[in-house]
Amino acid sequence: MALKIRNEGVRKFFWGFLSIFLVFVLWYFASQLDHMKNLLPNPINVIKFIGISVIAPIGKTTLFGHLYWSMTRVMTGYILASIVGIILGFFCGWSKLGSALIKPIYSVLRSIPSIAWIPLAILWFGIGENSKYFIIFISTMLIIMTNVIDGVKDVDESYLDVARMLGTKENQLFLHIVLPCAVPQIFNGLQVALGAAWATVIAAEMVRSSKGVGWLILMGQTSMNMTQVFAGIIVIGLVGLTLALIMRWLESKLCAWNIRGK
């Protein structure tokens, strides 16, 4: 029954388009039902809302303004976390001393879900930006650390042997073998962490904030403006998608040796 379309790209586009279109139509008719009136917004209104809010402010700023705030929070925490997480992860994974020093604390912190840090962060850093940076930082850093540690642990012992055979000194092994070997796993960690950072910032903004896309959807809920809620969710999904695509593209550039090319 499936239509036979040769070209992979065209096929994907066709089905993607059809599928999104169908959802849209279903959504439209569902929103027209009487008892759905205040529960499900008209998708056309949602699209219009997104379009308008690019220029017209909601609350303190426009849609882009909110996105800008959310992204700043994500990026500040995330970049800091990447640096610290990679360094600590290597220290913990490569050196036994590092592992003995860091592992115990790390194991305790690691089991706490990112969201559970929100109240403590607010207590410690107030309701301003710092608490949000902290929440993003602590949750993504632990994810990145985990991946770096695994990456270092998974380095094939035989590569170290080969390297020694080729004249590598013990103190060169780390930079020349362990580091490049762990790159794909580290990258995986960075990817997962970015997704988690995006989810966490939404939660943090819903709990306590006056701007950002998390605030946007929570505000929609309190004012019973479902159009705004759904517009926010779609924008959140689009940004999540963009971030994932960027990371995948970066991976194909940086870890080319690890991916079976055409």
Partner: peptide
């Protein structure tokens, strides 16, 4: 791509 938490407002209303 949509974090599950983003659905909280919708579900709360519903």
């Amino acid at each position: 791509c949509i974090p599950g938490l983003a659905w909280i407002p919708v579900i709360t209303v519903w």
